[in-house]
Write a protein that binds this DNA or RNA. Structure first.
Lengths: 362, 362
DNA sequence: CTGTTAGCGCGTTCAT
DNA sequence: ATGAACGCGCTAACAG
């Protein structure tokens, strides 16, 4: 059996309460006894039982982090910055916590399951990252869970997803939203300014918030760009838009579909950088050059984007900063933004994959 | 305050013991009372307290997964497969567990800290993934922790790192090792067979096991390739080898260094695919074409490798299979391999980034 | 400064 | 089939 507080106490010739006090260092203890206790701890290789401590003190060392895909650097970057922030709080208020990274795979059911599991564990905090599935039923189910969690003192942070519809502030939720719409808009404006008029759009999964926001930004730019064959609405726009997943093969398949439709696109905007890689591969496999024949743009500015050839024009999201901030918020180390919602700016990164359309194709 | 078992019991007009039995379903309970209890649970929105349960039953729902870098898809792929395996055990023995993904950043201290934290939590299992720092002191410190953990019933799995030196089997540790040496050897043999004789090597961090194994495989191939200017040993070999991190910029910098040394390399092998991307970028920025002027090869076959241009020749490691297997082992759902060690085969993937050296440079 | 006492919420005997 | 009672290991009040 594992060694307990009582064992240490017996060995040191003190009461278990004293041992507890030495361990937690939040109470005056005589130097000599403190030494005896620490020696006993080392001699017995004592390690506190986190569960018993949590039960007695009604606190938890766990912070849940829900991500749609751990294998996607988008989430990896957020998670690693977040974990660095919450795990390194040696001296800071709240100490350091363990991040439980939960991979939902984008499944609403898995999301709910994990929220229940975290509730079971009485998690100190929960961070939901990335796009959410936009369905009334799911939103309600999530809201129910979050309300309960918040009521029991769990800090909730939304990172990279829009604030909860009704009264998220009232619940004490904090949101770090990404300016997907603005970034997408500036990206498409960039393409328009280069002279592109027929711009294909490879969107993410249809029912996701991030997908919608980016698509809205794209169409807003098109509409503002004045009348033309590709006005961003109606049948023409639909022909130029293909939905898929957030993975590379979706970009590949969607691009082949766009080419098949013979829309004469001179540029393709992808849901994110990973998808953009698939787009590039499909174009090359179809014998088209980038950006000579077709310009390509991504979103997120993941580390590999600068290494694609040509380097990818994309929209940078400060994922690590956002993750770190989410970490501080969930630890209560930073004051929540006014209104509970902070919107993180995105930045257009123009690189080699976009250029003016070639005269012949224009 | 949160609703407890006692609250549910009171509401259902039964004892708390009965509620516990209904919840765990491991004891006969009359159908009618079972219904009453379940109704009370729903009406009160009762959620079990995992910590209290763990304390009373001396079990844990947590499985720790140590990774060197969550933002690296290498670990993401392992972690996601692992989590899918341990989290989806609805009906299987051991039920489902929560993966606690711990990001060590490759730091030995962080690794030890996390092991202690997991020991505190009385984790049901711990999986250590990726290369380890090869230092006597650190190995001993890890061994101490793992021994204690194993003694207290925690299942330990090593995935992608070599088995512990002394008697890892005796401790009940299980290891899934990757055949880094063999893969590296076949990769370099491939380059030799193409006609390359001066092969640069951009190695990973000097003190890591994976770095060493891959480098050994590389040199073994060179030595077996017969005498020549680049025999894989001595000063000539040292001039052709540069150490760096496992990130892109290391590959970039190391390549510039190799070019500066004017060794006349016709091929560069990188520590992994991420580093290889940096190598490619540096070559391109130096006005060299791939594979026309210099061939490039990576390792791991991460998803983006096939999208590089040219597509990266690399060595495939079945990371997801390995992660899933690690998950089954740590859950006790699969018998340990004979001797406690399984070595996963690696496969050479020849793609466009490698070709025979151009006659002029040979 | 230190020891004693009383739970935290649940699983699990032992009775009934 | 159900209930009462105890203890898991620890922290937090209350004494002293």
């Amino acid at each position: 059996m594992a060694v307990t507080l009582a064992d240490v106490a017996a060995r040191a010739g003190v009461s278990s309460a004293t041992v507890s006090r030495v361990l937690n260092g939040n109470y005056p203890v005589a130097g000599s006894t403190k030494d005896r206790v620490q020696r006993a701890v080392e001699e017995l290789d004592y390690v506190v039982n986190g569960q018993a401590r949590a039960l007695a003190a009604a606190t938890s060392d766990l912070v849940g982090v829900l991500v749609n895909d751990v294998a996607d650097p988008f989430f990896g970057l957020i998670a690693s910055a977040l974990q660095a922030e919450i795990g390194a709080g040696g001296t800071q208020p709240g100490g350091s916590k363990l991040a439980v990274v939960c991979n939902t795979g984008g499944s609403p059911e898995a999301e709910l399951t994990y929220l229940t599991l975290l509730e079971r564990q009485r998690a100190a905090g929960v961070v939901l990252t990335g796009s959410t599935v936009e369905s009334k039923a799911h939103a309600a189910a999530v809201a129910t869970r979050l309300t309960r969690l918040a009521a029991s003192g769990t800090r909730i942070v939304l990172c990279g997803r829009p604030p909860l519809e009704p009264a998220s502030d009232a619940l004490g939720l904090m949101t770090i939203a990404f300016d997907n719409r603005g970034g997408a808009r500036r990206l498409t404006e960039h393409l328009l300014s280069l002279g592109h008029r027929r711009i294909g759009y490879v969107a993410g999964p249809a029912e996701r918030s991030t997908t919608r926001h980016r698509l809205e930004g794209h169409r807003a730019a098109l509409l503002a760009g004045g009348p033309g064959p590709d006005t961003g609405a109606g049948a023409a726009a639909d022909r130029l838009t293909v939905h898929g997943g957030y993975d590379r093969s979706s970009g590949y398949d969607a691009t082949l579909e766009l080419l098949r439709r013979e829309t004469g696109v001179t540029a393709i905007v992808a849901a994110n950088d990973t998808v953009a890689l698939g787009v590039c591969a499909a174009l090359r496999d179809s014998g088209l050059s980038i950006p000579g024949d077709v310009s390509v743009a991504g979103f997120d500015d993941l580390p590999f984007s600068v290494d694609a050839s040509p380097a990818l024009t994309t929209v940078r999201i400060p994922l690590q900063e956002a993750g770190a901030r989410a970490g501080r918020l969930v630890m209560g180390r930073q004051a929540p933004p006014p209104g509970g919602v902070a919107t993180v700016a995105t930045e257009l990164m123009v690189r080699g994959s976009t250029a003016p359309p070639s005269p012949g194709r224009r």
